[in-house]
């Protein structure tokens, strides 16, 4: 093992840590790569939605969508992006109680989003008769927004885990580096919701 010993001497050399990427921990790089792949996923689904827009032979069209209600849903999520950011920042600064409050607020706002979306979908299904097998608009609309909803639900699970950690009293910046990654994920999911709102409810409706 003389080789290793000799090499270790170089550890003190001026070349040390030349490659370090600022504050990019493995967790952050991993989360960024994951979100990159998520972007590819949603881009594919948006392409499919646009491809089929206006190709239906019959059934409901995007005219049935309720812009005002969806705007409320998106704003709820956008506000939750602010609360989750505060939670992440507070944890980094060691303020665990206010971090917990931030996480709970985020969760409540998300539940609000889920309720509004539920109302929207209920009306689409019960009143307008738009289901996934009704026509192409239904297929692509529910797939696109369903994927987003799945991501919101996954985010809820993350928030619940953070709450569980907080209530068990073991929340601190050292043991929960995931909080920042969760905030990143949350901002991404909310960015997607803004994108979907603009594409589906505003630009192409």
């Amino acid at each position: 093992m003389n080789h290793a010993a000799a090499l270790s001497a170089h550890a003190e050399s001026p070349h040390h840590d030349q490659h370090a990427l600022g504050g990019w921990t493995p967790l952050k790089v991993g989360m960024a790569s994951f979100l990159f792949s998520e972007a590819a996923l949603f881009a594919t689904l948006i392409v499919a939605y646009l491809k089929f827009l206006g190709q239906d032979d019959g059934g409901p069209t995007p005219e049935v969508l309720n812009v005002g209600r969806e705007l409320v849903a998106v704003i709820l999520l956008l506000v939750s992006s602010i609360t989750v950011q505060f939670a992440s920042r507070d944890l980094a600064r060691g303020r665990c109680t206010s971090c917990t409050v931030g996480v709970i607020l985020t969760f409540i706002l998300t539940v609000g989003f889920l309720i509004v979306t539920g109302l929207e979908w209920r009306e689409l299904i019960a009143v307008d008769g738009l289901t996934i097998n009704r026509n192409l608009f239904g297929s692509s609309f529910y797939t696109l927004f369903g994927f987003h909803l799945g991501h919101v639900l996954a985010g809820c699970v993350m928030l619940l885990i953070m709450m569980g950690i907080a209530f068990s009293g073991s929340l601190n910046a050292r043991s929960s580096p995931g909080m920042e990654a969760i905030a990143w994920y949350w901002h991404f999911v909310n960015g997607v919701s803004v994108t979907l709102f603009l594409v589906v409810y505003v630009i192409t409706r």
Binding site: Q18, H19, L21, G30, S37
Partner: peptide, 20 residues
């Protein structure tokens, strides 16, 4: 996909000192 993310994170952040 999880393997791909793992490789990226490993290669970008865990190289030995001096391995630019």
């Amino acid at each position: 996909l999880s393997g791909g993310i793992n490789f990226i994170a490993t290669i970008l952040t865990m190289r030995a000192p001096g391995m630019t």
